[in-house]
């Protein structure tokens, strides 16, 4: 797969992972990129008895991939992130969640048939 196309796909993939994903997908390998870490590792904060993920509190989500060549050597690390288009964080990702819930399983099903169109709105 062309390197630019792979990175374009990875840039969209951040919208479909973690909390409030645009579409529900499984797996941790996309082409020759493997997910190694996401912003879940930033930990949590408890406020008035409720515990929140720190990335979600900041309306941010980031995910890192390792890219390997055909010999299995790591050639690149890519970080894809979302959460910079609504600095107040007031209603972030709602469009993504709307898509998930609106389509219920239909979107996930279309993904499993091989299409990779997010159809995401913000």
């Amino acid at each position: 797969m062309n390197d630019s196309i792979l990175k374009a796909i990875l840039s969209m993939d951040a919208y479909n992972r973690g909390y409030d994903p645009g579409i529900s997908i499984s797996g941790s390998v996309i082409g020759n990129a493997t997910i190694i870490k996401d912003s879940f590792v930033l930990g949590e904060t408890t406020i008035l008895g409720e515990t929140y993920r720190n990335d979600q509190l900041s309306s941010f989500y980031g995910i890192a991939y390792q890219i390997k060549d055909t010999n299995g050597n790591i050639t690149d690390t890519v970080i894809s992130y979302r959460g910079t288009d609504d600095p107040t964080g007031e209603y972030l990702f709602d469009g993504a969640r709307f898509n998930t819930i609106n389509a219920k399983n239909a979107v996930a099903n279309s993904m499993s048939s091989g299409s990779f169109s997010t159809g995401r709105q913000q």
């Binding site: 997908i25 499984s26 399983n105 996930a108 099903n109 499993s112 048939s113």
Partner: peptide, 9 residues
Amino acid sequence: TSVPNQAEN
């Protein structure tokens, strides 16, 4: 698990 070419996960 998403299954290629199958409608249902």
